[in-house]
Design a protein around this nucleic acid. Sequence first.
RNA 1: GCGCUCGUAGCUCAGUUGGAUAGAGUAUCGGUUUCCGAAGCCGAGGGUCACAGGUUCGAUUCCUGUCGAGCGCACCA
Length: 584
Amino acid sequence: MYKDAIVTFSVNEVIEHLTGLIQQAIQETGLYQDVIELEKPREATHGDYASNIALKLAKALRKPPRELAERILQAMPASSWVAKTEVAGAGFINFYLHAQIWPQLVPVILQQKQEYGKNSSGKEQSILVEFVSANPTGPLHVGHGRGAAYGASLANILDANGYRVWREYYVNDAGRQMDILALSTWLRYLECCGERIDFPPNAYQGTYVREMAEAIYAQHARQYWHDPANFMPVSLSAHTDADAHLDALIGSAKELLAVDYVYFHQFALNEQLADCRQDLAEFGVQFDQWFSEQTLFDSGLVQRTLNMLDEQGHLYSQDGAIWFRSTHFGDEKDRVVQRENGLFTYFASDIAYHLYKLERGFDRLIDVWGADHHGYIPRVKGALKAIGCDAERLTVALVQFAVLYRNGQKAAMSTRSGEFVTLRELRAEVGNDAARFFYVLRKSDQHLDFDLDLAKSQSNDNPVYYIQYAHARICSVLDQWGGDTALLLNAEAGLLSSEHEINLLKTLADYPQTVSAAARELAPHLVAYALKEVAAAFHACYNAEQFLLEDALLREARLAMILATRTVLANGLTLLGISCPTYL
RNA sequence: GCGCUCGUAGCUCAGUUGGAUAGAGUAUCGGUUUCCGAAGCCGAGGGUCACAGGUUCGAUUCCUGUCGAGCGCACCA
């Protein structure tokens, strides 16, 4: 019986117990309040938990809150968990718990191990998290890195909350940007052939394009050569529209190369996708599926989606294009789905993509987008509504771009110009762990100032080491002890009673609530902050108490406590995709 | 011009159904190791929560306005 009590002990239980006490007291006094709130006071001097119930009731009853609080307290049944109650401040009821309830948590954590902190609130609902989804037209940069770190951590957190999570990367392999990349590669290839090319300024400038061209030239020599005079008769002049010029070049390339154009297109796509995949894998970011935009066209789904919209009367023609009447669904203007030249817009395939996500049976969709796409939300949700889907099932999580600072100045970031810091460079400089942690330490919708010089020169000051150091310290102590950690499950945790010990145990007790809050708010940064709290409580305890004592009972109790601490640190770091080193 | 997101300590940021004396890191200053890892711990100073109104027992939090910042307003993705 005692054993059962141990196994189920949690903060949830404590909170339910306390709200139950309040509930009983309220009924006893003949009052009524449907929702009973319990909060953790900021100040330790305000108890372990506090209720504002009297303040809430005061308004309706037109009585002084302190007087109501006193009445409620009088009627409250006694509890073996509660050491003291008091009325404080404007009319708060503060609860002070017996410190001895917290050590009960230690064997719970030691038993649950990597399961500690998880819950089943997701009820096996399936949820698709789409993130990164950068165009495969060049290396990932540090802005993509933030979306990757956020999305991957979020997916892990949702998984820990009992959702069935599907991680997906949407590959934009069908659009104009890919054509520009294919063209860029071919032009660089012609340079390899010895031609002098007037390389368009709005084509991809990065050195990786040259590298692809060189690889193709090394393998196929002049097989794809064509005389530039045949397709670049006039260079770009002031009165020419740059985009039109680029499109004309793409058209010429397709005409001259014919099927060989597909080779360049595919080569560039495969190359960049492979690079991207490897980069993310090294960053600890894995996907269940890389979803090709092209397949939406090949399967006819885009056309079918537009037909659905058309049948409902949501499409119309104007100026030679076909428009979706998104203004009927909350958007500020109507949007083109098929251009005058017959090509579908990105929006058209995106509607099809979102429809298909729902058709695949996912209960919920989360899109992780760069915050610069926020204006895009109303039209996607509007389109879902228009084809009869529940747009509420889609949540768009916006991630602000990381703003880079180099030499105290904002660093330019443009894929086209090739002036950007890649994710790979960042990882090499500060390490995967520091990068992952730094990315999710901020609320995702906040701008992130990423000082490269600071990150590079003082990577040891990164807060991730504070947490990893706590983990390593524990490993070190347990290692010096040398005993069998499995035996610590039977330790007399009840011997833990010092202020530092209790404080540490409370941070461990809070961890499951953090995991569920992080899922509810789609906020991995909550986990990062909670881990800092755990580490801080541990470091303080470490400096105040000795672990490797002569007294076997107390020694094992404390070792059990730090083993539990290590478990929580490891569980949290794992959610954030950060390693748990045994030494630093 | 319109829309979205923001404005918290010198700096970078937490603070979530509105709660008590607004917190942490960093930087600055002062302590701390014959002892399990000092990448640690303990302490000090540092604030008109951009500004002005409003809602109420109570506002950093909700509403309105002003100022300031970023982003968006394509037959690009």
